[in-house]
């Protein structure tokens, strides 16, 4: 089979595959946590003092940091795969993947800053 290589398609499929699985395992542990936080606040089980006590804990910051890194890696590879499948013009695909990477990196950095800043 002849593989036609196009700009902005997966030349690095094995590496993508590996990082997608590694971040997935990390997310199995860390992703449920923010949902527990949201439900705690939604249900009234956590008031702001209780919430900030939780978030101020070193472990909480550590888990949040791992979560953010894993989300950015996982979401980037996932969305990149979808774009590679459905967006056919190479220039548009490169533009979309690039824009996505910048947007996700920005959101990740903002989120990290938020995590490490609260509580003083």
């Amino acid at each position: 089979m002849v593989i036609r290589k196009d700009t902005g398609t997966a030349h690095n499929g094995l590496s993508d595959w590996y990082w997608q699985r590694l971040s997935a395992v990390l997310l199995l542990v860390t992703l449920p946590l923010p949902f527990l936080l949201l439900w705690g606040v939604y249900s009234g089980a956590l008031n702001q003092f209780a919430l900030l006590d939780l978030l101020d804990h070193f472990l909480s910051r550590l888990f949040h940091t791992l979560l953010i890194i894993a989300i950015v890696v996982h979401a980037y590879i996932g969305l990149k795969t979808i774009l590679e499948d459905y967006v056919h013009p190479p220039m548009l695909r490169v533009l979309l993947i690039g824009t996505m990477l910048v947007a996700m990196a920005t959101a990740g950095i903002w989120w990290l800053a938020l995590v490490w800043a609260w509580g003083g």
Partner: peptide, 8 residues
């Protein structure tokens, strides 16, 4: 992120 920003 928006909700987290508000809650903290």
């Amino acid at each position: 992120l928006w909700v987290l920003h508000g809650m903290t």
